[in-house]
Amino acid sequence: MKSIFYTRFFILLPWILIVIIVIDIDTKRLSVRNTASFYLSRLGNVQQRQVVRTTRTSSSSTTASSSGRNATSLPVIYAITPTYSRAVQKAELTRLANTFRQVPQFHWIVVEDANSHTELVSRFLARCGVRYTHLNVFTPRRFKRTGMPRATEQRNLALGWIRGHRGSKDKGVVFFADDDNTYSLELFEEMRSTRRVSVWPVGLVGGRRYERPLVEKGKVVGWYTGWKADRPFAIDMAGFAVNLQVILSNPRALFKRRGAKPGMQESDFLKQITKVEDLEPKAKNCTQVLVWHTRTEKVNLGNEPKRQQDSVFIEV
């Protein structure tokens, strides 16, 4: 009896192994098929693009069609926008989206200062018409005191996302766009050609009409600013852009939180990735103001009823 049992067990064992191996091979074949279908779909894409080009060429002007062709090779502009919940948040994001929607090859990275994605921002982004990534990280309360830098954790999280999701074959430019500034459309075309780090003037910042890099013979030689002019990079967050590959090749470059002195965030970051002599001046050798450091007044809610008076909930 025992010998019969053992005999049957040993006869069945190799068959079980064979079945398992065959299943494994089938799995590999499936992955091979996925790869093949991926390439095939890419081919389909190429065909579709050709169709689209034909349509554009027939229906629009030469300029449009040429820009359409260039669009596939244009570097992508990644705009990092930290935001936090307040009365004017949706309004600010709305007009920011109205601007960004007109920039081709644009990727909006919105980082909320919150423990999770808020419904307001999630719903807003889903309908804003801009390609986006929605992230969130909460700033510890001890870093929210007056005078402390804002949005440090949010910008660093966005940099982390870029480093984790983009590779050496991607072409792009990274720009830090706060949610209450004003950006002209020209600015984005200026920064798109950034090879390493480019700079330009910023209006209405630092207690002055504008701040700007001083340029001689196409090189940055100093800083025109009214505040801490001795900073190595005396520039506002809205006054520079970084090539995507520079961000990827300096994986440890982050905005400092601990021990950061007021106004040194930009310098501490740029010091890790470039030198003053390597900066690329934009906006006609830094003589044009294409971005403004505007701020929206705090909202007066003095007449807001204590209890919910309106029977309908209305998102503002």
Binding site: V88, K90, A91, E92, T94, L204, G206, G207, R208, R209, G226, W227, H293, T294, R295, T296, E297, V316
Partner: peptide, 12 residues
Amino acid sequence: WHTRTEKPKMKR
């Protein structure tokens, strides 16, 4: 939205 922009500070 009836937003209003702060008057920029021009002390410097």
